[in-house]
């Protein structure tokens, strides 16, 4: 875009009706060119900004102001919570870096305590300069809303949400920290088995073998015992059958009738 082209677009730019491609070219030209007619452009910007004073004035609903105040309060709290969470996370990270060799279990307990105390400290003193300014001055609707005079429900809900959020944040960071510690212990510690443990594992193997052999012997004994019993029973049955047949033939011969 040449200087002349840019100058031709001054009015359209001030009026805000450039096409997107012209808008981009104009922006690039502004960045790169030092000879831009800023004074003329500023003059047109002032003229254009006077156009709304010719409209019939309207007044927005009072609720709009309250809504803005509520939204600002929420944003403010969210910002503080985020800052607090970020700070806690940083401190946890630093702690992890400075004491990597502490046992995992103890580590978690120590860090939990730290976080809890930090959060309690923050809860009691969330009075950073900005919050003090916003929450403790005592005039105006925005201020009143920020102090929860407009909508007390929102304040209490926000407090709950904030507490919930803090809890979640702290517990998640704790979980994260403990997970990291466990991970670091797993990855950093060499694999080492103590001699006592070795002996214990040997004994265990021997006991297992003995138990196995005993179990096998008992199975064999039981097998032989059962099979001899079965054989005896079979013989007994055969013997009884023969006796029965002999009895029937005797009866047949005596009565001259067959059995049913």
């Amino acid at each position: 875009m040449s200087e002349l082209q840019a100058k031709d677009l001054l009015q359209a730019k001030a009026l805000g009706c450039l096409d997107p491609d012209e808008e981009n070219m104009f922006s690039k030209f502004l960045e790169e060119n030092k000879n831009f007619p800023w004074q003329e452009y500023g003059h047109y910007q002032n003229i254009v900004s006077h156009l709304p004073i010719l409209l019939d004035a309207e007044i927005p609903d009072q609720e709009v102001k309250n809504k803005i105040a509520t939204k600002l309060l929420e944003l403010n709290k969210l910002r503080e919570v985020e800052e607090a969470a970020l700070e806690t996370h940083k401190e946890l990270k630093e702690d992890n870096q400075t004491s990597p060799e502490i046992e995992t279990d103890n580590d978690v307990i120590i860090e939990t305590d730290n976080v809890d105390s930090e959060i309690t400290a923050e809860d009691s003193s969330t009075d950073k300069p900005e919050k003090k300014k916003i929450l403790f001055r005592n005039h105006g609707v925005l201020q009143n809303a920020l102090e929860d005079k407009v909508n007390p429900k929102i304040e209490s809900r926000d407090d709950n949400q904030e507490n919930e959020y803090k809890k979640t944040q702290s517990s998640s960071t704790i979980r994260e920290a403990s997970r990291k510690n466990v991970k670091s212990h797993i990855s950093k510690s060499p694999v080492y088995i103590e001699p006592q443990a070795k002996e214990e594992s040997k004994k265990g193997t021997i006991i297992a073998i003995i138990l196995f052999v005993v179990a096998m012997i008992s199975i064999i004994v039981v097998y032989f015992k059962l099979s001899s019993d079965i054989r005896d029973n079979k013989n007994e049955i055969e013997r009884m059958k023969e006796q029965l047949y002999s009895d029937v033939s005797v009866e047949f011969h005596l009565t001259g009738k067959g059995s049913a």
Binding site: P52, L55, D56, E58, I59, P60, K133, I134, R137, L142
Partner: peptide, 24 residues
């Protein structure tokens, strides 16, 4: 500088003309 009372005053001063423009 983070002064919400100033923002409120700015709102009181400008809300009408800005709303008129936006509504248009």
């Amino acid at each position: 500088g983070g002064d919400s009372s100033a923002l409120e005053q700015l709102y009181d001063r400008y809300s009408s003309i800005l709303y008129t423009l936006v509504r248009k």
